[in-house]
Computed example of a mutant assay.
Amino acid sequence: MKKIGNVLYVTTPEAYLSLDGENIVIKKESAVSMRLPLHNLDGIVCFNYPGVSPALMGACAERHVGLAFLNPNGRFLARVTGRVQGNLLLRKRQYELAAKEDTCVAIATSCVLGKVANSRKVIERAVRDHAILVDVPALRATSAALKESLSSIQQCTGLDALRGIEGNAAKRYFETFRELILHQHEDFDFTERSRRPPQDPMNALLSFLYTLLANEVTSALETVGIDPYVGFLHADRPGRPSLALDMMEELRPVFADRLALTLVNRKQITGKGFLRKEGGGVLMDDETRKSVVTAWQERKRDEIIHPYLKERVAFGLVPHVQASLLARYLRGDLDAYPPFFWN
């Protein structure tokens, strides 16, 4: 099992990273603002414009330190990797199964079941914990609709039908998502999911967290030797980590949606931390991005009992556990891929 190493998030747009011996040097306006040992890091996520020196890229690739580049708004740009790791036979098996409709449906069904079940759990938790503050009938109606979707998902025999059910379930979930926002309604009002660009602060926050999650899942899949770009639910597309998007579906409600709601409801971030661009899109400012990344890292240190392993694991290890379970299924060690069901 993979340990959660330290991940360095570079959120200052003007920062430039270089290598000095065994240390990373971070400069801002030609002045050194930070220096730390490279061997202490498990990954680096950059939201900066100037970028990283070729020497540091090479060192990260050689030492298997994940290095990802995102734009300041959190949109994934690129990932630097070294020699391909992992079992060649495992990847060949993955490609073989990805060409079979029945296997794709089986794995995709597990991912969608996890997503819908966890979305329903988020809603039920809100009813349980904040019945005085939320529209209980509306949320219970959504929960019932999602429960019905779970039955339909299990009966699916084709990917198109499965994608249709997943899309309808997601639409229903986000139709009542605003009921989960308990405070700061004026700044974080939410009517529908919008992307590329997000049209309001809550959508900007969700998109940013989804990008962080996608990077975590991609890294986890690469760690166990699976190709993150060959998926079973999302269609293959050049440059898109389709399998990472498949697996992150079941983790979105728990990892990203709940953290977004916590940050807003506890007023750890405010509407003042978001900027509206001329084209109508909304993005976070530097300080808000730092606050979100800090909360993300703290959340990863929380411990849970994994529903399948029945063992206590750090929350940040869940993507790595799920990647390992998928690898076991692809090898034939498991009869099915067990999705992550949040308890």
Rank of each mutant, 00 (worst) to 15 (best):
D189I: 00
G158K: 08
T211D: 12
Q155I: 01
E186A: 14
L221K: 12
A169C: 08
S194N: 10
G231W: 05
V134Y: 15
L146R: 04
A260M: 09
I165F: 06
I165V: 12
D227P: 03
I226S: 06
R196L: 04
H234K: 02
G239I: 12
K147G: 15
Y173A: 06
F232S: 01
F208V: 02
F177L: 10
A220Y: 02
S194D: 08
R193N: 00
D160R: 15
L243G: 02
T262L: 02
M247R: 03
K147W: 13
R193H: 04
I132K: 14
M202E: 00
R163E: 09
H130K: 09
S143N: 05
R193I: 02
F208D: 05
H234R: 04
A131E: 13
A169W: 11
I181F: 07
L146D: 11
F174R: 08
A214E: 15
F208I: 01
P238A: 05
G158E: 15
A235F: 01
F190V: 04
Y210G: 01
T176D: 14
G158S: 15
T157F: 07
D189R: 09
E192F: 06
D246T: 05
S143F: 01
L133D: 14
L205P: 00
I181V: 13
R237C: 10
L243I: 02
T262D: 10
L206W: 04
H185E: 10
P198I: 02
E175W: 11
E148D: 08
E186I: 09
N168C: 13
E222W: 04
F190G: 10
V134P: 15
R252W: 13
D227W: 09
R195V: 12
E186V: 14
D129E: 12
A244H: 03
I165M: 02
G225R: 07
L133G: 00
L221P: 09
F188C: 08
A145E: 11
N215P: 00
R172W: 12
D200F: 11
L139Y: 07
M202S: 02
Y210N: 12
E216F: 03
R252V: 03
T218C: 14
F255Y: 09
G158H: 11
Q155P: 00
S242G: 07
Q184T: 01
L206T: 03
P253R: 15
S219Q: 08
N215S: 13
S151K: 15
V224E: 06
R128E: 14
Q199S: 15
P198D: 14
T157D: 11
L146S: 12
P253L: 13
M202P: 01
L261G: 00
V254P: 07
E175V: 04
S219P: 00
L243C: 04
T191M: 06
N215H: 09
V254N: 08
A170C: 02
H185M: 09
P137D: 08
L261T: 00
H185Y: 10
T176I: 01
D135G: 05
T157R: 10
F255W: 04
D246Y: 00
A204C: 05
A244F: 06
L251I: 04
L150I: 14
K171P: 06
P228S: 14
L206C: 06
M248A: 10
M247Y: 10
A170S: 08
